[in-house]
Design a protein around this nucleic acid. Structure first.
Lengths: 340, 340
DNA sequence: ATGAAAGCGCTAACAG
DNA sequence: CTGTTAGCGCTTTCAT
């Protein structure tokens, strides 16, 4: 008739019923190989029946690790990052040891990123995955040397990192456009300041150069990472005295907005203007028209990042590596030869 | 020259330097009003300088609350839920006391949902927000009475819940279609089993009835919650001997896929077929054409849910309430009169 | 207003 | 193989 909010069981409760000491129960759970077969069985059955669960606070206090990892993304409400997050979750579910996932949004804001680092420190997460942080140096320096880290889309010799082969990917994209006969090719980046934008712009320009194509300043627009931004940028591009015949959006979302804008103006995609995106976000192949894009395998990368992180936690002495993902160009219907 | 991975400071470290006992430091942090002004100041300055942070495990072990809340969504890589998540994060950031956010995906899977409940139990989260759980009764019964909970898009007298006014919203949507002159209206749901699908279908059918419109069985399709699914469902609909002149997708993502499919077949949206979505996901207004949709304010709802949860944690005795969100129909360009 | 002491539940020596 | 013991770092009576 215990009316109290049933207090969780403790090791002692189990020990009492099993007729052993609480440390034996602890051992049974953490190092079963050290326990007599019969006793072990008896204990584990009891644990099952009673539904005992180790108090994570007590355990963490003792072991000083939290079984928690953190993921820091610029924004969770961005399909590519949401996808990457799902990949991380998937890896965590497959892992043999349970890890909880704490998610933070940095909003591409350096100050907030530092604040988050502080939080990670306080909460003593076992590891952290940083995705394409804001400008400046990755904030990993604010974190203890011995905290496992992996960087995504940002490189740093001293930390494991997963990066994209922007050079190769953008050459492939520009090659495609070049083969179709495009000469006037514009780009819509996310913003003017973020490293992500700058890098994609840089390699895009480099790729154009490979084909002897210049990049006029008026062909560099900024879309604020949103569909709306892509829309507005496209409007500006299309109003140019000499509008581009092809546009690269540094994100599918931006590219989608660009296509919407063009269509709203009565332009036909791809006949009047080709569009290429980046990420292969879910749904991009169902747009009108289906979007040609560079597939960045966000889910896969998230999963891989988590696997690397878990490995690093298990074996902290492994040398940091950098793995480079190549981008695959998915040719769909948003690209075609320019109107002659 | 301490080479060790600098161990975090403890209360004792601070106490030592401040020339007081560790309990005084603890009090200074948790109950400053009990401490002598001068001492308090001295201690807090030290805390600042040294960068001391309470060890969360020790505190939680003592207080048995975790300063962590959980969010359980069907899938994080779904724009509406990602948006809702962002709303939850926003509320947490604005709150006076820090709470960490643990995120779980239930995949609309009852078994997994139960597993997650188990996890929540083990991790002793202070509260949980369940979003449109899988079929069956909400799993809140598996959780201790005294754990704060809020349900989103699922109602339950005994728990705070946020629900959508599907009835009103769908009547508005159908009214719009009816006024435009549509008679042959189809629906693409998410799946055949989930409560979310069933409810939206039910109220859609009810809304059609309000205008004297029947819903033929062949006008009920299922899109698996994805753009691809919406695409395929639309293909089936359009191949019917008598294809619908308007389609309601229970999700913008599904509706987007439906529009893409129609376009790929050479149909013009909205001239040949109107499309209405649900959620007003980011980007829906930049589609080709911009999608008419029922705005479900996901971000706002997430934020509100978190606020309610925090209130509940603070004041557990408050009566559970149910707040109903009305849906606003955003008329954009994907709806028009049917071809005469 | 402050200190001493107990103990949250657990893990990991250390004995036996 | 198992029990005893000593903390992990903190909050909170209970004294003073």
């Amino acid at each position: 008739m215990d009316k109290l909010p049933n207090k969780p069981l403790t090791l002692k409760d189990v020990a009492l019923r099993a007729g052993v000491s609480h440390s034996t129960v602890s051992r049974a759970i953490n190092h079963p190989e050290l326990i007599n077969g019969a006793t072990l069985e008896r204990i584990m059955k009891l644990v099952q029946e009673l539904g005992y669960h180790t108090n994570p606070f007590a355990r963490s206090l003792q072991t000083s690790h939290s079984s928690t990892i953190a993921l820091v993304v610029p924004s969770i409400s961005n399909l590519a990052f949401a996808n990457l997050t799902a990949g991380v979750q998937a890896a965590l579910e497959e892992a043999t040891t349970r890890y909880d996932l704490l998610i933070f949004s940095s909003d591409e804001n350096l100050k907030k990123e530092r604040f988050i680092c502080n939080l990670l420190l306080q909460h003593r997460v076992d590891g952290v995955i940083f995705v394409s942080s804001a400008g400046g140096p990755p904030p990993t320096s604010l974190l203890p040397e011995n905290m496992a880290k992996v960087l995504v889309e940002r490189s740093n010799k001293k930390v494991d990192s997963l990066i994209l082969d922007l050079e190769g990917g953008l050459i492939e994209a520009c090659s495609h456009l070049h083969e179709l006969g495009h000469k006037k090719i514009a780009i819509i980046t996310g913003d003017t300041t973020s490293i992500t934008s700058k890098e994609r712009l840089k390699w895009f320009q480099g790729a154009l150069a490979v084909f002897g194509l210049p990049l006029a300043t008026e062909y560099v627009e900024h879309g604020g990472w949103t569909a709306r931004g892509g829309w507005e940028a496209m409007l500006r591009l299309l109003q140019l005295p000499e509008p581009p015949t092809a546009v690269f959006g540094v994100t599918d979302t931006i590219a989608m907005g660009a296509m919407g804008a063009a269509s709203s103006l009565g332009f036909n995609i791809p006949a009047d203007c080709s569009v290429i995106g980046f990420n292969n976000e879910p749904g991009s192949s169902e747009l009108n028209p289906p979007l040609t894009t560079l597939d960045a395998c966000s889910f896969q990368i998230g999963k891989h990042a988590a696997e690397i992180l878990l490995g690093k936690i298990r074996n902290p002495d492994r040398q940091p590596t950098e793995v480079k993902y190549s981008l695959r160009l998915l040719k769909r219907s948003s690209t075609a030869p320019p109107r002659s």
